[in-house]
Amino acid sequence: MEDSRMEDGRMEGSRKGKALVQLFLSTLYISAFTFGGGFVIITFMKRKFVDELHWIDENEMLDLAALAQSSPGAIAVNAAILVGWRVAGFGGMVTAVMGTVLPPMLILTLISFFYQAFAANPYVALLLKGMQSGVVAVILDVVWGLGGKVVKERSLFLCVVMAAAFAATAVFQVNVILIILSAAVLGVLRALWLRRKKEGDRWFT
């Protein structure tokens, strides 16, 4: 966005306003038309903000994508926060998050109001019931792929964590947050242990 590097301070405000409007419309559009979750939305953001608007360079976008995926919360929202901050600071963040969250909110609000009548209709109920079989297949297909990747890492530690977490949630009904926190603590301990093993005595200096 070469032409926006303004020397004239008075113009800066209206330029920023324009950038915010464009940021809002871009995130609104991307969010409204992207099915298939976080990874897909990052591809669309790259196309818009890197290739089309040149607001962010490609390597930085890759890092932002990695950050969005490693942070808690929805990947799409995380990516919007990062891109928003990057483009226009705090105001940009609020704008990008609003743009990302509004379309699903509006759509789900409409669906929620009609859901009772919807689900009471026998034809719609049968359609939904059949689609439930499909959604379970989609989820377990994803689990199969992700679980396979974990197994392929050939790490006993990771396989044990996976088996223990599954037993904890499916058999013993342990609280989900407790399982996540335990896995995180194990991860920290393992990272420290690996580093200590690698660095030997230099660890404390």
Partner: peptide
């Protein structure tokens, strides 16, 4: 490092 060991747990939870 943390994420690496969180991933199998998250897969199991899903």
């Amino acid at each position: 490092g943390i994420l690496q060991s969180l991933r199998p747990a998250v897969v199991a939870l899903i």
